[in-house]
């Protein structure tokens, strides 16, 4: 089940990457190479094996008291934003 060029274009859209034509060509080949190596996993019988979501067994869900805590100062955040006005992140218009 080789990955097609159309699938690569679809995945690039999902990942929000505006790839060039050359990149799409290159990634189509490379994803197939990598996935071919990855498919070796099929040699392993995993029937009934539970998946590992976390490396350590002793950590389950972690809770903390639901109390208000100070966050980052607004003036610290303002300086790192690409566009900022009146305490808000500015983005291109979303709704016409």
């Amino acid at each position: 089940m080789a990955v097609t060029r159309a699938e690569v274009e679809h995945v690039a859209m999902l990942a929000r990457l505006s790839l060039t034509e050359e990149e799409i060509t290159q990634f189509t080949k490379q994803l197939n190479d990598i996935l071919e190596a990855v498919r070796r996993m099929g040699e392993v019988d995993t029937t009934g094996v539970p998946p590992t979501m976390h490396a350590l067994d002793q950590i389950k869900n972690v809770f903390r008291p639901d109390l208000p805590r100070p966050g980052l100062a607004r003036e610290d955040v303002a300086g790192i934003a690409p566009a900022w006005a009146e305490g808000l992140f500015v983005v291109p218009k979303v709704v016409e």
Partner: peptide, 14 residues
């Protein structure tokens, strides 16, 4: 086929 399978292999490695 990919993610779940990989996480199961992870269990076997552990």
């Amino acid at each position: 086929a990919y993610y779940k399978k990989a996480q199961q292999i992870r269990t076997l490695i552990k």
